[in-house]
Nucleic acid binder design. Structure first.
Lengths: 243, 243
DNA sequence: TCATGTTCAGTGGTCATACCAGTATCATCC
DNA sequence: GGATGATACTGGTATGACCACTGAACATGA
């Protein structure tokens, strides 16, 4: 056994620059919209080349910390959970496409999450919330023939339920989770009559939420999602005909 | 009112390159460990300069898709949820430090999440799991005097509960959520006697999990977390002396 | 005076080249 | 054969130049 741990952290220059920039942002109390020094200024200020500055800046942009536009100075970005999950998409895509087990884990995570959302919605939903949900279902029904739009409104339905919690993190997450999973099942949901079943399940969920039935809402959501998961696995296409 | 939506997406060159690289990875079925062409090869292959290639490559690296090391060719990275949440840290830090409301939302998200983890653990925990949890608490007790280690083991406790679900996403999330929140409360938890209270609450949680008491486990976890949240707000330091 | 159009300095985006700093490879030597 | 070291290849950084875009100062005209 050799000495395994060699914590000789060989930091790239741009990493050092990035850290300095973060320090500047923090000490100067820069808020969203404030401008950072130009690349050329920073370059002379730090005594490094422009590539180092640029790489650090690009990195900050990918993190969602700053916004960079051609011709203007970089500015502190508006914080947003939505943007963050957006940026996670490609990573998630990579993970899912190279690790089938992760797909199952993510499905479970979404099911767990959505059940909890249904529970919270059943506790907090106001009449206006319920009305909004029903309106979404009606819109979705009107688009039964248009599969892409149908799925899009499906996402909006779940997002709206999550939004009832009043927590934007939940809303963003609900939207992202469904989007990620959908990107791996395009075409699989083309089962005749599936739309009607989906709509009926959605209505069942709203009914339970309106009644304030916490356990019932959770169960309805659970049934809905696991029915969908079963469809993914194509293991009961035969008996789905009754829908 | 002017025409607001101008979807004239002015894509940077590196974005185009990035997309091409993703296409190459997908069509060539490149798996973890496989090497990508060198920057200079790609440069001539795409007919662009090295900066464009580099920016795209750096972007892919930050997404966790590839690994780049000095002197070697870039290689496809091993997919990992843990790494992904790790990369979210700085974004999260930014959001939390510029949006106090988000901090509250994140606290709620964690509380909701941990309660669900406790429920699942109560359903699935095997004797070995319970024994492991108790061992962690004992270790934590032995480190009551060492605050940083104490907090670290605290995170491990929650992570272990999440791990009982068998879903690595939950484990990674539990760890990350606590880490992010802790980074905003260093020093706030230095209340005399707090360690004993924390340990007692942890033991209560494990007791409920061991008994398979789903509702009880959730409530114990909830009490634990909201007590901690109250401490953050420093609104009942006086009566915490009994612990 | 005010609105309008133009100019121009400043900024990020890209390229080319060169050189530095690590790795991997393979011929060489013991 | 196995350690050794030269060498070619790779990513990291610097420099200088030029392009494309933005915004504000400026000049122009009504």
């Amino acid at each position: 056994m050799t000495t395994e741990h060699d914590p000789i952290k060989r930091r790239k220059l741009s990493d050092e620059v990035q850290q300095r920039l973060l320090a500047i942002i923090e000490t100067d109390r820069l808020g969203p919209g404030d401008a950072l020094p130009s690349e050329r200024d920073l370059m002379t200020a730090f005594g490094v080349g422009r590539p180092a500055i640029r790489e650090a800046m690009q990195s900050l942009e990918r993190m969602g910390l700053v916004e960079i536009r051609h011709g203007e100075r970089a500015r502190i970005a508006e914080p947003s959970f939505g943007r963050m999950v957006e940026q996670m998409s490609e990573s998630m895509r990579h993970i899912l496409s190279h690790s089938p087990a992760s797909l199952a884990h993510l499905k479970e995570a979404r099911a767990t999450f959505e059940m909890e959302m249904a529970r919270i919605a059943a506790q907090r939903a106001k009449p206006a919330d319920v009305a909004r949900l029903r309106r979404i279902i009606d819109t979705q029904e009107a688009q039964s023939h248009n599969s892409p739009v149908f799925l899009q409104i499906d996402a909006r339905f779940h997002r709206e339920i999550a939004a009832i919690s009043g927590n934007p993190i939940f809303a963003s997450l609900s939207e992202a989770l469904l989007k990620w999973l959908q990107s791996f099942h395009v075409g699989l949901m083309r089962v005749p009559g599936l739309e009607k079943l989906t709509l009926a399940e959605h209505r069942q969920i709203v009914d339970e939420i309106e009644a304030g039935n916490v356990a019932g809402a959770a169960k309805a959501m659970s049934d809905h999602l696991y029915r969908a998961n079963d469809l993914y696995h194509q293991d009961h296409f035969a008996r789905s005909g009754e829908a």
